[in-house]
């Protein structure tokens, strides 16, 4: 259906009237701050004032051991959390998909609860459970004779990051599970039946029939989990404040600390720009790798 230019012009005017409220909030509170952030990253903006320093912040960042440590922690979180979340949610999704509707919605709900309750409520209770003297885990471990005295899970550089990843895991798998259950519902059931009549095994059915059709969902799950893991912040701010000795500091946490504790806005904005670029690169790479995988 082609439109005459007159009609199209009329449609354009009407469309922009409809778009106006959304664009007001989007341009005002998303696009403008993004642009401001990029501009500020080239200045040394701080409490006292601001002057243009071009790339100085970026050069300084790559010589800043705390930033590099935070970047490393962030990458560790992403590299561990993304595969674990994807595999677990796919497994849980397939396992509960075959259950009765009531059991399915019960489990789906349970795994979604930590997302609903929000990081603060989740973190305060985990922090208590991990506590060296008052925590449940240490009490049970000491009671069972595994430890002779409480272990500072959150205060030890070897375990703190693992605790962060565990909690991140419980707050991350809810959404992928919902997505996988929905995606499995869209798999052509006549093909699955035909294959099982022909004697295909469970594994064959999964890899040959179900996997290709849930591939777009997997891609989406991987991308959103990557973005969320890169932004891991609330958890850390509430659980460890980046400690001990920056063992749990992530780029987002260091950004917050730099901007709102040390008031180095320009420097922090440069971190934000780098984080955004890294996330964009990761997402693009995942798209490329996973799309390439399906065409082969």
């Amino acid at each position: 259906m082609s439109q005459s230019p007159v009609l199209r012009r009329r449609e354009t005017v009407v469309s922009y009237l409809f778009l106006l409220p959304a664009l007001f909030f989007f341009v005002g509170f998303v696009v403008t701050p993004m642009a401001m952030g990029i501009v500020t990253s080239f200045t040394d903006a701080h409490m006292g004032g601001s002057k243009f320093v071009f790339l100085d912040n970026y050069i300084k960042l790559f010589q800043d051991p705390v930033f590099l440590k935070s970047m490393l922690n962030t990458v560790i979180i992403v590299v561990v959390a993304v595969p674990v979340v994807t595999v677990f949610s796919l497994w849980v999704g397939s396992a509960i998909y075959e259950m009765r509707a009531s059991a399915r919605s019960f489990f789906r709900c349970v795994f979604y609860l930590p997302v609903v309750t929000g990081s603060v409520a989740v973190v305060v209770v985990w922090r208590w459970m991990f506590h060296t003297y008052n925590g449940l885990f240490n009490h049970v471990l000491v009671g069972a004779g595994i430890l002779d005295k409480g272990f500072p899970f959150l205060g030890d550089t070897r375990t703190a990051l693992a605790c962060v990843i565990l909690i991140l895991f419980t707050t991350s798998i809810g959404q992928p599970i919902v997505l996988y259950v929905a995606a499995l519902g869209n798999v052509d059931s006549s093909m699955v039946e035909a294959a099982s009549v022909d004697g295909a095994t469970r594994m064959q059915i999964f890899w040959k029939i179900k996997w290709p059709s849930i591939m777009p969902t997997t891609l989406y799950v991987v991308v959103i989990t990557t973005i969320n893991s890169f932004q891991c912040f609330a958890l850390i701010q509430l659980l460890t404040s980046g400690g001990p000795d920056y063992a749990t500091s992530t780029v987002m946490y260091y950004l917050y600390d730099t901007a709102f504790k040390q008031y180095q806005y320009g420097y922090a904005d440069a971190m934000g720009v780098i984080l955004a670029i890294v996330i964009a690169l990761f997402s693009a790479l995942q798209f490329k790798v996973m799309n390439g995988g399906t065409t082969e």
Partner: peptide
Amino acid sequence: KRFYGRAFIFTLFVCAMALPKQVILIP
């Protein structure tokens, strides 16, 4: 609706969604 600038606006929305929203906290 089919209107001038539709593709551009839609692309802008999608790109913004792929960006981490926490990095704009300071600005």
